[in-house]
Design a binder for these strands. Sequence first.
DNA 1: TTCCTTGCAAACACTTTGCAAGGCC
DNA 2: GGCCTTGCAAAGTGTTTGCAAGGAA
Lengths: 152, 152
Amino acid sequence: MKSVQEKRVFQIENRLKKQGCSMTNQRRLIIDEIMRNGSHFDIESLMAAIRMREPKTARATVYRTVKILADAGMIKKEILGDTHSHYEIAGRDHGHFICTLCGRIIELGCPTLTGFLASAAESHNFTVDRHSIELFGRCGECERKRGMEEAA
Amino acid sequence: MKSVQEKRVFQIENRLKKQGCSMTNQRRLIIDEIMRNGSHFDIESLMAAIRMREPKTARATVYRTVKILADAGMIKKEILGDTHSHYEIAGRDHGHFICTLCGRIIELGCPTLTGFLASAAESHNFTVDRHSIELFGRCGECERKRGMEEAA
DNA sequence: TTCCTTGCAAACACTTTGCAAGGCC
DNA sequence: GGCCTTGCAAAGTGTTTGCAAGGAA
């Protein structure tokens, strides 16, 4: 019985093959590792996870593979204002909330977003192809912890 | 009679002095140049403008001064996903629309934004301190030009 | 005169590229 | 076997830092 993850990896491999990319061990490994770690990742942690399984994998290979996946539209570069790049598995439109205390990233899929995009585009007369919406602040849990610490 | 720009530069200088920063020629020059060029700028064009007036100004000085202004809250770093940093003169909350054809940056100050922020924060139970909202696409003018070119 | 600021060059962090060796099909 | 991919090291970018000399107060 195949897991959801295995199916996803398999699909991605097939799509890449159809585009004329050969499937090598490192590529399989990198794709598998990306799919394993939830929907968001950065190069640094991806590298670490990959080196764990295949220590002599070169940084360049990881960067190149990630670029191929991004060009093929399977992952998307995210702009989080950090010095290093973040990526996520491509999916529907959404924004992010990033907790500046615990680093957690929460997806905003709420319908308000769609409404906001439409009304902004209309009132300024432009066509929106792509967006990057990031809200920074404190998640409920961290906010609560902070309150407790201050009370103490 | 002083121009609006001169007044703004003067105010900023005063605020910096109160914070214990001495006002040097380069700092005055850099602040003046930032204020002159509309509300958005990046280091590269700022450098170019400054070198025009004071050719031996060091990159490091510009970076350092910009950092001071940002720490003092007078300008804000913007996250546009480009490789290099963008800044803008601090003001009220807003988002940006960036035309990917002509590079123009248009501010979104529309009330929908405020509504969106509030509803997103509420429905996900977090506190928003700061946001970065960027929409990428084509402005009305470029969209029209493109239509004409395709018709031809 | 005392401390802060500057210019320069070197260091940095992240990413990309050139090239010979190796692996896929 | 031919071509694509890899690893390595070197080059690139944008930014920051250490330090001696110069300038503000």
